[in-house]
Simulated scan of single mutants.
Amino acid sequence: MKPASRLNLFAVAILLAVPATASAESARSLQKEFPRLEVTKSAINLRELQSGGVPRDGIPAILDPQFLPVSEVTGLGDDEPVIFLSGTCGAYAFPYRILIWHEIVQHDQCGLPVAVTYCPLCNTSMVFDRRVGGTVLSFGTSGRLRHSDLVMYDHQTETLWQQFTGEAIVGSHVGKTLAPVPARIESWRRFREEFADGRVLIPPSWGRSAYGRTPYEGYDSAPTPFLYQGRMPRGIDPMARVVRVGTRAWSLTWLRKNSPVETADGLRLEWREGQNSALDRAAISRGKDIGNVRVTRGDVDVAFSVDFAFAYRAFYPEGELVK
């Protein structure tokens, strides 16, 4: 059995429901599902949008997150990945075992309204400031993909937003970009050791998902990405991970061999072992070790993501990639 065919649960439903050459989006179909969306304002060709096999909010965002103190959390494997924010109000961790089923979590971090997002198909985790033009937005999943990446929508105007870049791509907010917020992506063990008084996202009471298991078993080893029809990157496997800061990226394999790395403009990139992939084995706690990455400038965290190489090249075809 090929690795790509081992995607299970709702991912299997997606594969069965949507052919590899899924039909492109049309203004009419978008308007039907998003009646307040200004489809005439678009930064892209609508044909670049594809159905991900689920309808609007078919993957439900968490809009009212609940947390428990680190000391009360059980069941998480030591090396399971979490993305977390820290500040004067404390540290908050968002386990991938939950994010992989919901993709968007609305949160208030020390008075800053943020959206914690994760697209499994691109392996992209980003935290965004939800404030746009004096309005605080909230986000849901549109059921659409572009370059295999999550397309979000805001509840206020139904504008469509690209999760990979934070850009508004269709709707009244076209021309605007969500500001990224620095966050760390590390293992549960590293988070709880550094922030013993931190708090951790728990599954919503209405959730019915198999938290702790990935619906994308084997996707790490897939020969090609799902529902991606663009050009593949040269000189690197399309499913290889890269560490992205702005428009620049470094191969995770290269960083692993050369860590720590310091750039001319003051960035420091470090790799340390001990973090499970969320897209490998069925149980996330048994996923292969992809390691922890930290990106700083001086003593300050810098916003970054760890993406699949195909996605980086799709959105930044001229970007600088050290591989």
Rank of each mutant, 00 (worst) to 15 (best):
E193H: 10
R272W: 03
D129A: 03
L112G: 09
Q275N: 05
A91R: 00
G207E: 07
A222R: 03
P60F: 10
Y118A: 08
I100R: 13
T253L: 11
N258P: 08
G298L: 07
P238S: 05
R231Y: 02
T263R: 05
T263Q: 01
L15A: 05
T40W: 04
S23R: 13
D301H: 06
N258E: 13
Q162G: 05
Q66E: 14
N258C: 04
A168H: 02
E186F: 02
P113M: 09
R146H: 01
G87F: 10
V306D: 12
T157A: 13
N292Q: 15
R244W: 05
G212Q: 15
V295G: 04
A303S: 12
T247V: 12
N258T: 05
A303R: 00
P19I: 01
R28H: 09
Y96D: 14
S285R: 15
I104W: 08
A278H: 03
Q275P: 00
G235A: 10
A278P: 01
E25S: 15
R268W: 07
R28E: 15
F84R: 02
R208H: 11
R131Y: 00
L137N: 00
V242S: 14
G52T: 11
K32S: 04
P182W: 11
D280G: 04
R297P: 08
L112F: 07
L201I: 09
G175F: 00
L279P: 03
H107Y: 04
P204A: 04
W101V: 03
S5Y: 14
I83Q: 10
G166F: 13
V261W: 11
S209H: 09
R28L: 06
Q109R: 08
C110R: 06
C122N: 01
G175Q: 00
S277E: 11
R199L: 01
F84A: 08
R213L: 13
E186H: 13
F128W: 15
I98Q: 11
D79S: 07
S305A: 14
L269V: 02
S148Q: 04
A283T: 13
V18H: 02
G58M: 12
K288E: 13
G133R: 04
I284P: 01
A93F: 01
G134N: 03
V295L: 03
E320P: 15
K176P: 01
V200A: 08
S42R: 11
R130C: 09
E273G: 10
E80W: 01
F10V: 13
P95C: 10
R248D: 03
V132C: 05
T141Q: 05
